[in-house]
Amino acid sequence: MSTFRWIATCLAVALGGLVMAEESPMLGEPVDADTLARVDFTILPNGDGLPAGSGTAIRGAAVYQQHCIACHGEEASGGVNDALVGGHGSLATDSPKKTVGSYWPYATTVFDYIRRAMPLQEPGRLSSDEIYAVTAYILHLNGIVEQDAELDAESLPLVKMPNRDGFVWDYSP
């Protein structure tokens, strides 16, 4: 019995049947496809949810210079905020360095992170093309994709991150 039905049952008993046991308020408004598309930010590791658009590391370098370098430093080596490169091969050592390149298992997460949250002071200002491009740039700096590799909804999920197989699920529904 779901929690609601349980409550409803209790109310039904208490109020002499004013609320029926299997009834649900049903107060949600239907949502049209347009609205859904606008609020749905979810991107799955298989690429489901990635928007149209594309970009290469060459273009991404310019996006990075303009929007990211102030906080993440020259070539994403770290500045005021996190380094986005390096740490490769360090995870099993005494000084592990977890970065996008050394630790993150899915390239789609890089796109997801930037689209949701970066640049920190003005999230939402980059176009999809710019996000693909700056994602390509960060992956290129980590030696994961070529400088001229075109990333888009098809190719991004196929990028194999170095630590792709490094995660073990502690919970399986």
Partner: peptide, 28 residues
């Protein structure tokens, strides 16, 4: 969904690195 989305900080931050370099994910 039918699978986790591996969102934002889900893998990068909220996972537990082990000595052998592997990481535990979803230690809720």
């Amino acid at each position: 969904t039918d699978q986790p989305a591996m969102t934002k900080d889900e893998t990068s931050k909220y996972s537990d690195l082990q000595k052998d370099g592997s990481a535990k994910l979803f230690s809720f």
